[in-house]
Design a protein around this nucleic acid. Structure first.
Lengths: 220, 220
DNA sequence: AGTCAAGTGTCAGCCACCGCCATAATCTCG
DNA sequence: CGAGATTATGGCGGTGGCTGACACTTGACT
């Protein structure tokens, strides 16, 4: 069968044949089972066998849907990432890169819930960030995906601005932006409550610092 | 015994007792054995048993020195990172943050060879970057360490500039800097020859773009 | 020399992960 | 609707990373 394409993050698909729907349901069930168990007993404290049992499939089937335990743990993050990337692509070409990125993050946090509700409730998704931050292996993989996303963002920005692919400026801007995203992600996992509005305010505030951060002299 | 403290990256120590010297020798031998085998047969194509056999110790002993296969693969990178961090701390306080970072990278590439020669020749170290780039798991862990290093850099810059720890500007600057480092790392792994001078030139060139990258309008 | 601490090997075992083949469920098409 | 081609699933067996426990050896210190 081979798990669905790039293994995650596509938006809702039109109801296809029974087989397809069943596959999707199995995958969602597996992801949800995994996340629930991780939340309850921790990532390392959960075995694949337990996840498979809860989803009522064999261990072997788990691995037909997810290449690894990590992948299951980060499957919802993948969805959130493509959701955000789509939001960036939807920004009008006239906006400056930073403006577009800023607007896209804020917008995607407004609509993230619908995008993931077929798998897990928003609250569990937010709690997942804590788990990631707490587990080195998960964090590592999470960062790798983030860097990969930055790669795509870089290309997208270069395209919007009509720049050569080797121009370093988009990459640098996106890196600074990614730095902000990483801190706010950490904040998300730190604060006890997942208040999305508060998060959005913090993001906006940090992003406004990107300009000043490159000024020559910070010492007043 | 418990492997050496933070598990890597300290500079040369004065010749202590026989026990200490032996431990150090074992660790270096293990790291070298691992890197050589990885280079020859690939990371995944090498088992811990093979590494242990080549270093002439038991598999169990390998794990007394390295917490994981990854850690052995990245042990030299750890040394390079602390080497660089030390170079940053050695920069005069009068230099602006970006100037200091820039000078520190260039300087640390000048002296990296001595820092690691007790373990592997420079050339093998450079080839290791290719291996990291080619293996998702290694790349993930590598990025995690890099982000952690950026964390320390951020603190260091904030300290130099006498800024509050929550000021986002050092973090953003370091992120942009880190973005440049990541591309050049990729270049290092891409070009067939590990010409350090050419690398240094590229780094300098990219770093000079950080300022312009934040300008409002890039479209000529 | 004798005691103590620390490094090492062996063994047994958990768990993530994968190839292989048999089986059972959909799909397709006449 | 039913036979045959596809495709998902289960079970089995095995590999390899990693760990705890325990006994043994070797350097350290008096």
């Amino acid at each position: 069968m081979r798990a669905t394409g790039s293994a995650a993050g596509q938006a809702a698909a039109p109801p296809a044949g029974l087989r397809e729907r069943k596959k999707r349901r199995t995958r969602d069930t597996l992801a949800r089972s995994a996340l629930e168990l991780f939340d309850r007993q921790g990532y390392e404290g959960t075995t694949i066998d337990e996840i498979a049992a809860l989803a009522d499939v064999s261990q072997r089937t788990f691995f037909r849907y997810f290449a690894s335990k990590e992948e299951a743990a980060l499957s919802v993050q993948s969805m959130a990432e493509s959701h955000f990337l789509a939001a960036v692509r939807a920004r009008p070409a006239a906006e400056s890169p930073l403006t577009a990125l800023r607007a896209a993050v804020l917008a995607s946090w407004d609509t993230i819930e619908e995008a993931i509700q077929s798998v897990v409730p928003l609250e569990l998704h937010i709690r997942t960030y804590r788990m990631i931050e707490a587990n080195p292996q998960l964090l590592a993989e999470h960062l790798r995906r983030q860097v990969q996303l930055e790669e795509e963002l870089t290309r997208e920005i270069a395209r919007r601005e009509g720049l050569d692919a080797t121009d370093p400026r988009p990459r640098i801007l996106v890196s600074a932006f990614g730095g902000v995203m990483r801190v706010t992600g950490r904040l998300l996992s730190g604060t006890t409550k997942g208040d999305v509005n508060e998060l959005k305010r913090t993001i906006a505030e940090y992003l406004d610092q990107i300009g000043p951060a490159l000024a020559e002299n910070w010492r007043t």
